[in-house]
Amino acid sequence: MHIINVLVLEDDDFEAVILKEYLEENHFNIVKICNNIVDAIEIYHTQTIDFIIIDIFLNGKPDGITFAKTLLKRTRNVTPFLFLTGHAERSIFENAKVTHPHGFVLKPFNEKELVYTIQLILNKHNRSIEDNTALNDNSSVPYFFKKNGVFYKILPKDISFVEVEGRYCKIITLKTNFISQYTLTDFHKQLPSFFLRVHRNYVVNANKIKEVHSKDNLIVLENNQTITLGRAYKNTFFDHYKVIR
């Protein structure tokens, strides 16, 4: 399970201690608690951050809003964040709203309120990513493969891997195989983004991977089929994942 890395921007030491306690008790990893936006920006761009908690007022100024605006300018896909504030004035809310925060939590807050809000934001954010990925990948659009005069309907998710077959390529599914007149490189371009080139002879459905034996350069699929992980593709392959050691 991936641990959620949290960046906190909070200048009140007492509030920072409470946040640290609440988050760690609920298995979040606090990467850093910053009390100014300069440090927060540096941490954001040098560490892996999954979620940000931002106090709107730092040293009496709405620097939290400034920090959020900076993220919008510098980053295309902003990490989900929520604002903390002890100010309930409408003007503060309207000013903060232009940064499109994923949520607001008013001080004083309790543990469940904070944690549930974060979990709801992350669930919504993840669903949005999954929906966009599915839309962009066209992963629900089927292929029709011809074999012995019959056209077989196959969804991309049902393809385990694709391998070189002479000048063409072979599509492997759990039930049967097909030969395409595309080269492996050209057929890979037709596939959704969850298909990874792992060898000059193989493209693999990442969702079918069960294990990776790094020392042996071997990929094990759900059906216990094995695929060679090419040395030239190894670094690129692991770039698609967050490796927890």
Rank of each mutant, 00 (worst) to 15 (best):
F67W: 04
N59W: 02
N36G: 04
F144Y: 14
L84R: 09
Q190R: 14
L122G: 01
S214R: 15
V204C: 01
H87N: 15
F145S: 02
V38C: 06
N59R: 05
T85M: 05
P80N: 06
V6F: 12
I4M: 14
T70L: 08
K146G: 06
K32A: 11
H102I: 01
E111K: 15
N59H: 08
K170T: 04
L71H: 06
R231Y: 06
E25Q: 13
V198P: 00
L72D: 08
Y44D: 06
F81S: 01
D50F: 07
T70M: 10
T66A: 14
D216S: 12
F28Y: 15
F194T: 01
I4Q: 12
N224D: 15
N136M: 12
F83W: 04
I209P: 00
D12T: 13
M1F: 09
C34D: 05
I219D: 02
L19E: 01
K20A: 02
I244C: 11
T183S: 14
H45E: 13
I227Q: 09
S139P: 06
G149K: 05
N59A: 09
I30M: 06
N77R: 10
L122N: 01
K20D: 05
D39M: 07
S160T: 06
I118H: 03
H2W: 05
P108S: 04
H240P: 03
